[in-house]
Simulated assay, not measured.
Amino acid sequence: MNIIRSKDFTGERPWAALDIANMNGITTRLHWTDQPYKWHVNDGQEVFVVLDGQVEMRFKQDGVEQRTVLQTGDIFYASIGTAHVAHPLGEARVLVIESEGSV
């Protein structure tokens, strides 16, 4: 058993992660960041939950770039093949659930 206070987690670099669990190849990680990630496509599905802060999520749908601002408590689901990139608006803490070894 473990209790994690997500607001207390701060990384030494953008997208630093705290590994929470690995359940049959599905990882759950808490990320802290204040900088954008990079455009990428995951090997599998991804669930992205904003726990603290705001994140502008950019994604491509039918080849067209879309943007939406995710608030604390919002969830973004990326299906296989969805190109996306997260741009925090200030500091953010994000819970990411994805296949082990995903980008």
Rank of each mutant, 00 (worst) to 15 (best):
A17Y: 12
R29M: 06
L51Q: 15
E46N: 02
V49C: 08
N22H: 06
G25T: 03
Q45C: 03
M23S: 14
W39N: 12
H31K: 02
N42W: 03
W15F: 01
T27P: 05
F48T: 02
Q54R: 15
W39T: 06
Q54H: 15
V47Q: 10
G44V: 03
D52H: 14
I20H: 09
W39G: 07
W32A: 00
D52E: 15
G44T: 13
I26P: 09
R58W: 09
A16P: 00
G44N: 09
Q45S: 00
N22F: 07
G25Y: 05
Q45N: 07
Q45D: 10
Q45L: 05
N42C: 08
L51D: 12
L51E: 12
W15P: 04
F48H: 04
L51A: 08
A21M: 13
V55I: 07
R29W: 03
D19M: 09
I26G: 07
R58V: 07
E56T: 05
V55Q: 03
A17H: 09
M57K: 08
H40K: 10
V55A: 01
T27M: 08
V41N: 02
E46F: 01
H31G: 00
K38I: 15
H31Y: 11
A21P: 12
N42D: 09
W32L: 01
A17N: 12
F48Q: 01
R29A: 04
K38T: 15
M23V: 15
H31S: 02
H31R: 03
V49P: 05
W39D: 11
W32E: 01
F59L: 10
K38L: 14
P36G: 02
W39E: 10
D52K: 15
V49K: 06
W32K: 01
G53I: 05
D52W: 08
G44S: 11
G25F: 06
F48Y: 13
H40T: 10
Y37N: 12
T28S: 15
E46R: 04
D52L: 14
A21C: 11
G25W: 06
D34A: 00
Q35G: 01
N42F: 04
M23F: 13
D19R: 11
W15R: 06
H31V: 01
T33G: 00
T28V: 10
N22A: 12
N22Q: 12
D43H: 09
V55F: 02
W39L: 06
L18S: 04
A16H: 10
D52A: 13
W32Y: 04
Q54F: 12
W15M: 04
G25V: 02
D19V: 06
I26C: 10
I20Q: 11
V47D: 06
G53A: 07
V49S: 07
T28A: 14
T27S: 11
W39V: 08
M57N: 12
A16V: 00
E56K: 07
D34C: 02
N42A: 11
N24V: 06
D19L: 08
P36T: 01
Q54C: 14
P14K: 05
H31F: 13
E46V: 08
K38Y: 15
L51F: 11
M57R: 08
I26R: 13
